[in-house]
């Protein structure tokens, strides 16, 4: 005589119940914070768009341009929070409290349990990051739009497409960072089986990789475009730039001869120059072959391809790290 209930398999609703029961506070705090923050950024963007200015004071805040600079930094922190507080303790806490022995000795293979956790926590993590990034981007666009434009003086905007803050807030890029952070934390969690150690290593590695890809590798994603101008040492208005270079990523500039070959700047010419004989100075420089000034840059229309590449880099890293975590759990 038995009162046992039988069924075919342990399904996703069961994994969902377990994940919610175990991680509901994480999901509610980070999820709630991200949703609340996004709504505030959208409200601020609406305010700026409808009034056409960022000059709105609240309490001690003088205007919205400064705060938007701070808000723009938040998406970078979001993926790190997910990596360190969601993923890094995920397996290690089970190992430390021995609860993996409880949960893995039910009718659910450990790899399916892990798949459940990865999907049911990873998808919200990625979704929250994308949504939060999108809301920040709406605010940054509103701030850009509200900048007073002076005719003939270029198009200065505080958050140009290639500036790291707006480049990285893009939802697609945020998805890459969140997936990478989650997989990184999970891999360290599986490898170290120590929560604090895994959290520390995750933070260190996340910051390092983000810095290396964003600051060292990103300028080399594609071959930069080179433009030439006639060499002109006299004063030039620095805010007046070629249309092609508006919103671009500047790589470097240098001197070239008439054929466009790069030449080193003749420092001998400036050695004797003490602000007097300008014509003589120009003659010295041109005698050394300097005819043109060139600029290497990535034009603004490369932003989306660059974001795709950035996403691809982090997505590949995430896939590799997930494979490490799964392998580690399968080979017990």
């Amino acid at each position: 005589m038995t009162t046992a209930i039988r069924r075919d398999r342990v399904g996703w609703p069961d994994l969902l119940w377990l994940t919610w029961r175990q991680h509901r506070w994480q999901l509610l705090t980070v999820g709630g914070g991200a949703v609340l923050g996004s709504l505030v950024w959208l409200a601020l963007a609406w305010l700026i768009n409808s009034t056409g200015t960022t000059d709105h004071g609240f309490w001690f805040i003088g205007g919205l341009r400064g705060p938007s600079q701070l808000i723009a930094e938040l998406p970078a922190a979001g993926a790190a929070v997910i990596a360190v507080f969601w993923a890094a303790p995920l397996l290690s806490r089970e190992y430390e409290q021995q609860t993996h022995l409880l949960v893995w000795s039910q009718d659910l293979p450990p790899t399916r349990w892990l798949l459940g956790k990865v999907v049911l926590l990873g998808v919200p993590a990625v979704g929250l990051s994308a949504g939060f990034g999108a809301a920040v981007l709406v605010l940054l666009d509103a701030v850009n739009e509200a900048m007073p434009q002076v005719p003939g003086r270029g198009y200065y905007v505080p958050f140009s497409p290639f500036s790291s803050l707006s480049f990285e807030a893009a939802p697609l890029v945020q998805v890459g960072y969140a997936a990478f952070g989650f997989a990184l934390g999970l891999a360290f969690s599986a490898l170290t089986r120590r929560t604090v150690l895994s959290m520390g290593l995750t933070l260190g590695a996340f910051v390092t990789v983000r810095f290396l890809v964003g600051n060292v590798w990103r300028p080399h994603f594609m071959t930069p475009v080179r433009t030439y101008e006639m060499y002109e040492p006299r004063f030039r208005d620095p805010t007046v730039v070629d249309d092609q270079r508006v919103g671009s990523m500047h790589i470097r500039g240098g001197y070239a001869d008439a054929a466009g070959r790069e030449v080193p700047f003749p420092s001998v010419c400036s050695d004797g120059y003490r602000g007097g004989d300008e014509d003589n100075y120009i003659k010295c420089v041109t005698d050394h072959g300097v005819v043109q000034y060139f600029t290497d840059f990535h034009p603004a229309d490369r932003v989306v391809p660059f974001q795709l590449i950035e996403f691809g880099v982090f997505a590949v890293l995430a896939a590799g790290l997930l494979a490490v975590a799964f392998t580690r759990v399968r080979r017990r």
Binding site: T3, D14, Q98, T99, L102, L108
Partner: peptide, 26 residues
């Protein structure tokens, strides 16, 4: 080992959720 934040009823729920055969009364 049991999850420290779970009540005994939660742990039984875990057993019911993660097993294909479960006898709650038992």
């Amino acid at each position: 080992p049991v999850y420290r934040g779970f009540t005994a009823a939660d742990v039984l729920r875990l057993g019911a959720r993660l097993n294909v055969v479960w006898d709650e009364a038992r």
